[in-house]
């Protein structure tokens, strides 16, 4: 499913999107994804683990390490994604070297073949993205860009021109991870980033309350990762609690 179709559907219902991130291969990814979708996740970001994840905080780093230790690799990743039976857009989030090593064209093709319709690469700024963007377009995949609180001027305009699917607005300076203070800088970023492309806010959102305030500030969706991963890491009633948290956050986006 294309990301834009999902946002059109949500807009019709006046809902915000819950975009859930998990690292593939940390726990039973099939069950985890089903629980998230059942709870109300509209889009699922499936992390493809990389050995040196510089944009991630301790929670996601640990998840990536567990997935790598359990033997996850790009071949197994695409196999696993192909077998997922869910009716939401799937997005791969990974670092550039894994894409580069596989070959940009091959990677885009593998995404398309396995049902992935979006790619997020946290260490690929627009300046270096031209070649991958070409292969994405050819394979019907959105290349999703991040906008940081300090992205301004001509760089921001450039990103707005290139971004498809949705824009990933980073709520604050820093790495991924749950934080108490999300609202203030989010409002500022949303005011600055004017575009027709849906805007989803991530980095630090972990509760329905935070999600509601971001939604009220005008975001089209929220991205939640570390809060789900905390549940996976605990190993306690994982699918039940994932579904409950997804449902709590999703209900605050209606």
């Amino acid at each position: 499913m294309r990301i834009s179709d999902k946002f059109i559907e949500l807009k019709g219902r006046k809902e915000g999107a819950l975009i859930a991130y998990v690292c593939t291969g940390d726990g039973d990814t099939g069950e985890i994804v089903h629980a998230l979708v059942k709870g109300g996740a509209d889009i699922v970001e499936l992390g493809l683990p990389f050995s040196d994840p510089i944009a991630d905080g301790p929670t996601i780093q640990a998840s990536i390490q567990r997935a790598l230790d359990a033997g996850m690799n790009p071949d197994k990743y695409f196999d696993m994604v192909r077998k997922l039976d869910v009716d939401v857009p799937l997005v791969v989030m990974t670092y550039y070297n894994l894409i580069f090593k596989r070959g940009l064209e091959q990677f885009a093709k593998d995404c398309s073949d396995s049902g992935i319709t979006g790619i997020i690469v946290p260490d690929l700024p627009p300046e270096e993205s031209g070649e991958l963007a070409g292969y994405c377009e050819k394979n019907g995949i959105d290349l999703i860009f991040l906008v940081a609180p300090n992205t301004k001027g001509s760089r921001l305009e450039d990103i707005l021109k290139r971004g498809t699917g949705f824009l990933y607005l980073v709520s604050r300076l820093g790495v991924t991870g749950a934080r108490a203070d999300v609202a203030l800088s989010t409002k500022e970023v949303l005011d600055r980033v004017k575009t027709d492309t849906p805007r989803a806010v991530g980095f630090g959102i972990s509760s329905g309350e935070q999600a509601a305030s971001v939604f009220k500030s005008g975001a089209d969706g929220v991205i939640v990762g570390s809060a789900f991963i905390d549940i996976i890491a605990s190993g306690q009633d994982v699918t039940g609690r994932l579904q409950a948290l997804a449902s709590e956050i999703k209900s605050s986006l209606r």
Partner: peptide, 14 residues
């Protein structure tokens, strides 16, 4: 070479 870094660092590199 090049600049393969998170977006938040791009303004700093500039």
């Amino acid at each position: 070479g090049g600049q393969f870094v998170p977006e938040v660092l791009m303004p700093a590199l500039e």
